[in-house]
Design a binder for these strands. Sequence first.
DNA 1: CCTGCTACCTGATGGC
DNA 2: TGCCATCAGGTAGCAG
Length: 280
Amino acid sequence: MPELPEVEAVARTLRPIVTNRRIRCVHVFHAIGTKPQSPAKLARIAQNQKILAVRRKGKYLWLELPHSIITLHFKLDGQLVWFRNAEELSARANRREPSGVHVDIAFELDRGVLAFADRRHFGRVQFYESADACPALAKLGMDALSADFTATHFAQLLSNSRRPLKEFLLDQSRVAGIGNIYSCEALWHARLDPRRRADSLKPAEAQRLHRTILSVLSRALECCLHPPPDFRDPAWWFQGLEKILRVYDREGKPCRRCGEPIARIAQGGRSTYCCLHCQK
DNA sequence: CCTGCTACCTGATGGC
DNA sequence: TGCCATCAGGTAGCAG
């Protein structure tokens, strides 16, 4: 569940379901999901604890417990799955039957079971004493949908970086939450060449990019909430995002603004989609 | 400090 | 059909 809008939609949907529920126990089916932490320790720390809150920053989601937090990161393919009870979990988790579903780690609650699944095993479930004690969270820059993300603050960050715009936007330590898809989209809407140095933007360009980031993310979030995620269906995935995308994954197809073919270029080892004709 | 590159995994897809 | 290469919405860790 990749970028900020998807994770935010998951957080909003999950919040009313698990807040104030108690974790009875933790089932670890694939220990790689907690690596390099100990699965046994995760289970011990979470056992019998009440979930006080569900929070998000950037692409990280975490459950707040009385004396600790449990962070979830979905990386490329991770997702949440909901089971009605422990019986349904044991009947379906990692079974070969048609009703079977891949599960890495499951939190058995006093009502229902919340499971984390990622066949590719990039995603992680980890524990920390607090958000401040989690190095990855501490390193995150301001969340792109938070009040801190102002045009002024953003322009300031841009002016301090010599990196190409695309790489700048992917750097979670500056602005958190933007990934490969929405960075391509925001740059296209702002008509800015992804290869340009961040510190080369004029004030009006920086302001334009700030505005397009916000509009791209909020439009995607609206899309992710209608309909909201359905954790009961393991095959569920966000629908209709393609229709709001203007450049991502459109290599060779005509630019929706000028008609020139969309290019796919490599930046920082990833694909950037852009129109080399109208993004300057 | 900053930047660039690789590793980490599995599965889907497309060319030959 | 099969096989192989390439690609995927992310980040940590390490070398320079």
